[in-house]
Nucleic acid binder design. Structure first.
Lengths: 192, 192
DNA sequence: AGCATTACTGGACATCATGTCCAATATCAT
DNA sequence: ATGATATTGGACATGATGTCCAGTAATGCT
């Protein structure tokens, strides 16, 4: 067997489990989903589940990591300049969420606001990087602004994903930018 | 027994359970806390727990409702005019969180962002009410702005509660207002 | 095409938390 | 003091978790 290649059965099982997790999470929320549920929906033996993942969280984490890798790869190309007159991260993010809506609704939709820490942390890092370009020397202000923008972003995204939106991605991004950018600019650029 | 009065034992038990929930939530996060843990910490029989609350969530909900009632009562007095040059809700909220830091850290601190829906919903309502005063006719814009401000508020609050803050409540509120207000004003007041 | 490797399966098992119920005991209000 | 009410510990059924194993199926390599 070649080093990097994956047994077809393994790939199949993991795919089935991942899809089942998304479906069930969308239906009932992540907390309510059990390993039994997942295996039932995926039509995979429960003991098989445990040969792949130690628990439910590991499955989710794997799915997210896989996904973030894809995002990273695709955003490596268009690394445009930060902060000309808006945020760079949000546009692609909304577009991408629109494209893979199923997954995003599963991971951050629903009544509960259970946004996985991996996603939140990764996004916060993106935001912080962009804001750093906006002349902030004050570490506290930078951090407050980062949290502010990140929290606002997820809440808007959450709403937009759930409200089966008439709004196209570009439009929700424009609204988000309008809300977010001027405040951040003022605070970070301000002398005092 | 008089109608409204509560048996001393009942009050004691509920208080012990509530405090135990706060402690354990602060230590391990809400999801990790079990009813057994709570009873152990509170030194209350497990069967007693179930005579008061059907489950863990009910205990939390009761604690939150109790708390929100107190907040409502105290904020009935100072119902100043909305939106002169900032938000009204956030200042008292930061001050109040500072005063009852233990509870707030338990309910919205820690690594996980498990903000109870009661609190999020209540805050969003406050925000929406204030923003409605800012000339919004467009329902969608109003909603986006509401979500935006609410999400930003909780994320900033979360950070501020965890980072054993050098920042006094008034200061974090000022930063929050700087970040939030101008964007909202522009978007909601804008003609198009 | 055959064969060794690897994955899947289903069932058994121990463990743990949940929620219900009851009879005995302690505490309360009056 | 005494009747009412709360608390208690223990028993019980249930459901989910995570581990383990021996039998069976699918795969990849040559």
């Amino acid at each position: 067997m070649a080093a990097g290649s994956i047994d077809r059965r393994v790939a199949r099982t993991r795919r089935l489990l991942r899809d089942a997790l998304f479906e069930l999470t969308t239906e009932n929320g992540y907390a309510a989903v059990t390993v039994e549920d997942i295996c039932g929906r995926a039509d995979v033996g429960r003991s098989t589940f445990y040969t792949h993942y130690p628990d439910k969280d590991a499955l989710r984490k794997a799915a997210i990591d896989e996904h973030l890798d894809a995002v990273r790869a695709e955003s490596d190309a268009g690394d445009s300049k930060p902060g000309a007159s808006g945020f760079v991260f949000s546009g692609p993010a909304f577009a991408h969420a629109d494209a893979t809506r199923t997954m995003h609704r599963a991971m951050m939709g629903g009544k509960t606001h259970e946004i996985p820490e991996e996603i939140r942390g990764w996004t916060a890092k993106q935001v912080r990087r962009e804001l750093t370009g906006m002349a902030g020397k004050d570490a506290i202000r930078l951090e407050v602004a980062t949290r502010f923008v990140t929290g606002a972003f997820f809440e808007v995204m959450h709403w937009w994903l759930d409200a089966d939106a008439e709004l196209p991605p570009a439009e929700i991004d424009r609204l988000f930018q309008t809300l977010a950018f001027e405040g951040a600019r003022r605070m970070l650029a301000a002398p005092e």
